[in-house]
Nucleic acid binder design. Structure first.
Length: 174
DNA sequence: TAGGCGATGGTCT
DNA sequence: GACCATCGCCTAC
């Protein structure tokens, strides 16, 4: 997982042709008290205990949706939270959904990403390589920044947040 | 420009 | 009944 997470930085994520380049992610797995999978499988998180390459979508604070990629081998219950994108595809559609003109704020946070891409619980447990999802590997290796994760109350010291160094589209600087 | 806080609902204890 | 991997508005400086 700690190889997958930084490798996702620079990859392109599209949902129905709308999306952009991933510039910020966080890693979680089942030995990590901050992870949803820490207490074992439940109705909500069961997709994380399945095979890699699938989406895990959950509701955050009763208001927002957040999207994760399940990774590593089946049963390890690790996932990578997509926190920010650099918008490149379907910017007009994202602006419409976000009711926003500032391109920099379109996808600079996990709740914003799902709103801009139109992701809801209907997108839970979907394969990343089949419509409406699409994930494209980056062309070259970018400079990666690492830091502590954002917005959690447990295991806050683990430096499992990864980002594209110097990007203008991060949820917050490293 | 930075920090406080209310909204809001699924999930787990 | 409490917790929470957030956002955006409001205020104070």
């Amino acid at each position: 997982m700690h190889e997958v997470a930084p490798d996702l930085i620079g990859a392109t994520l599209l949902v129905n042709g709308v999306g952009g380049v991933i510039v910020e992610v966080e890693a979680y797995h089942h030995t990590d008290p901050a992870a949803h999978s820490f207490r074992g499988p439940t109705l909500r998180n069961q997709v994380m205990f399945g095979p890699p390459g699938y989406t895990y979508v959950y509701r955050s604070y009763g208001i927002h949706w957040c999207i994760n990629f399940v990774c590593e081998k089946a049963g390890s219950a690790s996932a990578v939270l997509i926190r920010a994108l650099e918008p490149t595809h379907g910017i007009a559609a994202m602006r419409r959904r976000r009711k926003l003109h500032d391109e920099r704020s379109l996808c600079s946070g996990p709740g914003k990403v799902t709103q801009a891409l139109g992701i809801t619980h209907a997108h839970n447990a979907l394969a990343l390589d089949a419509p409406p999802m699409a994930l494209y590997a980056r062309a070259s290796k970018p400079e990666i920044a690492a830091g502590v994760r954002v917005g959690i109350t447990k295991a806050i010291e683990l430096p499992w947040r990864y980002g594209l160094k110097g990007s203008r589209f991060l949820s917050k600087p490293f």
